[in-house]
Write a protein that binds this DNA or RNA. Sequence first.
RNA 1: GCGGGGGUCGCCAAGUCAGGUCAAAGGCGCAAGGCUUAGGACCUUGUGGCGUAGGCCUUCGUGGGUUCAAAUCCCACCCCCCGCACCA
Length: 953
Amino acid sequence: MDFRAIEEKWQKKWKEARIFEANPEESKPKFYLTVAYPYPNMPQHIGHARTYTLTDVYARYKRMRGYNVLFPMAFHYTGTPILAQSKRLQSGDKELIEQFKSLGVPEEVITTFTSPISIAKYFHEDLKLGMQEMGYSIDWRREFTTIDPAYNKFIEWQFYKLREKNYITKGSHPIGWCPSCKNPVGQHDTKGDAEPEIGEFISIKFIFEDKYLPAATLRPETIFGVTNIWINPEVEYAEVLINGEKVIVSESSIEKLKHQFSNVVLIKKIKGSSLIGKYVINPMDGRKVPILPAEFVDPNNATGVVMSVPAHAPYDFLAIRDLQSHSESLKKYGLDSSILSSLTPITIIRTPELSRIPAQEIIEKLGVKNQMDPKAEEATKELYLKEFNNGEMLPNTGEYAGMLVNRAREEIKRHLLESNKAFKFYEVINGPIYCRCGSKIIVNVLGDQWFINYGNREWKDLARECLSQMNIIPDEMRKEFENIIDWLREKACARRAGLGTPLPWDRNWIIESLSDSTIYMAYYTIARIINEEKIEASLLTPEVFDYVFLGKGNPSSLNKETLEKMRKEFLYFYPLDSRHSGRDLVPNHLTFFIFNHVAIFPKELWPKQIVVNGSVLMEGRKMSKSLGNIIPLRKALRTYGADTLRVAILSSSELLQDADFSDSLARSIKSKLQEFYNFALEYSKAPPIDKNYLDQVDRWMLSRVQRLISQVTLAMESLRVREAIHLVLFILMQDLQWYLKRKNSDNAKSVVKYTMEVAIKLLAPFAPHLCEELWEAYGHKSFISMESWPTLDESLVDDKAEAIEGFIKSVIEDSSEIIKVTGISPSRIYYYVAPNWKWNAYIKMIQLLEEGVDVKMLLREAMKDQEIRSKGSMAAKFLNSISQLIITMPKDRRKQILSIGPLNEIETLNNNRAFLENYFKCEVKIISADLAEYDPKNKAEQAIPLRPAIYIE
RNA sequence: GCGGGGGUCGCCAAGUCAGGUCAAAGGCGCAAGGCUUAGGACCUUGUGGCGUAGGCCUUCGUGGGUUCAAAUCCCACCCCCCGCACCA
């Protein structure tokens, strides 16, 4: 069979019949779902396919459940990575060219990639084709990109709304910056794709003559423990004027300061050594401390001025010790050795497991030799964490005494900044990081950055309210959403470069990509009309959106009819029933999605559900450019076919887990589908079931099918797709195999056909092409995609038939076990069936247990029964032997036995004797245990209800 | 650190919320048999240990506890992965 041909055939038919185009139909319930639209900067790979396939499966399922399903798609052009890529290609970046080539982009196409729009357009098409080839049931009439003028108008409207609510703020904001490109840098702009991490140092202004020496620290709370200042004597320093104040900093920090303060002027350069031996005043407590030399001081880190806290900083402790042991360096700077006596460590923090001088203890523990020992770094980190987490400020810290370190740090920082005794200094802390142009990344503070204030209290409350009403699948993620709503603060919502919508009131800024993609689900509902009627963007005024989405006002730019159509379509499909994305978008997009909806729309239009899925691994490893293990989706499509890919991606793990894709997985799924297909075809011509001729085994099979339907349906409702696939492809097929082993009549063909027809429907959301093909082969004229989902037929549920089949299976199992262990090749098998009184006792015990009799009292209670007691010690022995069995029996099974009552085992086994004899290739005898005349090994007394005693010879 | 997810019989992975059909689904791998000129594919069986009677013993990150009964509930601890933002 040719998967690809089948797929093309049905994709064409779907398209021609336009079955996935959804319009409002007032008489039909709607189901509206969307998935995060893709960013078209590289070919789609199988990792992307998971989220989209899951969404499509859900869409198809809901469609079969009778909903008018809308599943639209668009493309997110907004952002800077595409821009960065085109720049790299402009400069002939070989690495990127190779990467594109390896992902199958033709060379002549790559040459057009010097324009960012060409990149977006090319991959847009690639992504779209991939989605179509995967068979996604998307309504393509609603497609748009985020740089379409009409969409820009929509985003402008959204931002006006946010500003009206006072959710937009302005402030300063530090970002990674390339001083030669004069541009912000993100991960995609740096060599090695390193994300610059920005750390906030507090530069405490120690008073030095008429100037300041700003010591940069991450631990401002240690200000009380300062014994001296460290300067690197080998380094150039400089006196500069910052906002009218004279400060001394390392020369190499000046450039950085200029990007963080508006007014930085160099006065003169100074040798580091010239500062040594002078004194400064601690602005916090007024103590006078000396300036001393230390070679560990890095002029490239922050201000190049370091305050020394020997009790709590291993480097400082070591540097002082080094100084003490090298008196010649003291002399070199004309220092009197008496100065060292003033350098006694001042302990200001107490931490449970640390001694009086914590830095010293850590140094000794780790065996750090001196200030240049790499282990000093490790010691610093360890102490930093310990004190931060468990430390408490000692009495010598004034008003901060008794405070926990993490709190004191915030308080002291605030005090220092507010009283102008310190300033913030941002530094790239995981540096050096280089821009692709070669320059070192520094921090730039933008003074007029626009933010969306997700920190707003009332807004958070609304978001929480929305979340609490929403269905979150899987529910484990709910807690994470709650936490994220709590954490969110201001989010910089615009940037200087990239594709996107200009901020309407300040067009020097482009609205950033996570901010222009929060409520576009609403836009899809009218995108169809905008596309079909080719509505000019200029006509889409804020008043139009106010009317369409909020029902407010009376806009004049569009005619009434169009406006009403839009309003109607929006109100029909909104609120959104289900939003899908990978779990990586939980802390940003999905949460912003909630926030923006509650900000703009009335409660009745808030989204109802979020579905989150894990990512896809390739052969157990993360897919990445560097590993070169990214498989473009369209390439995989050609290798395996759409149905195989769909099933493989969704069947390898449950929702939240990472799915592990591999060639062997795809192959095995492919052969499984093939098997399913061939098997189903064999029965396509069978006649319908004649219900008058159903035997016990038929009824069992039909009953199993009913159970399958309800199990699969339940799984689909909460998107446990792995389970659903598993039930249909494995469990059901197992049952069918058993069924066919048991049966050999024509009637069986009809039962199998019925079963497969159900199975084809249940599998249709996952492997739609294959199932359409089979559906057609089964003689149906309709699309299975539009067929109704199977429902449980109560009249076919047959507990007794299932119990009997279970009984036969367990008899076979037990017999096989004995044959295996003894190594006998049987010539005759005897089954001694439990007599009535045992059944009665058995049922009595179950009844008692179900009535709530304590397990410990069970035996005693059962012995109260007249009939049981009449059997005397035999009964006691029997009860004892079955009590464990009954106690450990699951509740469902107990209920089942009670409802069915005693099973006529003799009759049942006799009915199946031919089967058993054939199975074991020997004679089978069935006897009631109390009538056993031939019982050479005294097995008969072991008989238990549903477990006949067995003797094999 | 904070927050989230996870640790199950060679590997992957269900089971955990609602304790008992759990020596624990399924897939892969492996082994034996069938099929085949051979290989592949396919089918059957087996795959913790012991066992000439359907059984017994040990096991679900570690250590305690609750219970007639714990992979599942409670407590403590160890380890792995991810996020902590301006980036799609």
